[in-house]
Amino acid sequence: METRPKIALFQCKWCLYSQPDQNWVDNDLPSSMYLVKLPCTGRINPLYILNAAQGGADGIVISGCLPEKCHYKEGNLSALRQHEEFLNFLDYIGYERSRVRFVWLDLQDRGRIQKELADFEAEIAKLGKAKVLATRTNVSPGGQYA
């Protein structure tokens, strides 16, 4: 039986504006997808992405507000800057860049997240399973707010 690619979805809690779409993401996401809801895409620690990659996720979607419409002024730009850098590193250790996708969503994009996810799933299916990276250590990241 062919298994569906595993996709981790990081979502900023202010984007995906329209209510039905939000309900769908909150409740009806297929089991091959996993939702992490954060206050802002800027809150996504590269650690999360690394862990998802190490854990064997086949694709990662980051969905946030449009560049000028960030709820925290420019948190999403900070995220973009940081993750573009981080993706170079992932690419280097063998996790292809094309497995990570940024989706900027607007209030007017009713029903777009479903399409984006389906499209991304098809693309990942074409790429096949992700290379198994060294699995993570069970050491806690440390620090008070880790």
């Binding site: 802002c40 809150r43 996504i44 707010y145």
Partner: peptide, 25 residues
């Protein structure tokens, strides 16, 4: 917003929230 906690390399700044880095991972 928590952007500071995402960029911090020594995990010494953050917003007390209902989730932690640990719980997300």
């Amino acid at each position: 917003c928590g952007t500071c906690s995402a960029v911090c390399r020594s995990t010494s700044i953050g917003v007390p929230e209902e989730f932690t880095d640990e719980s997300v991972v």
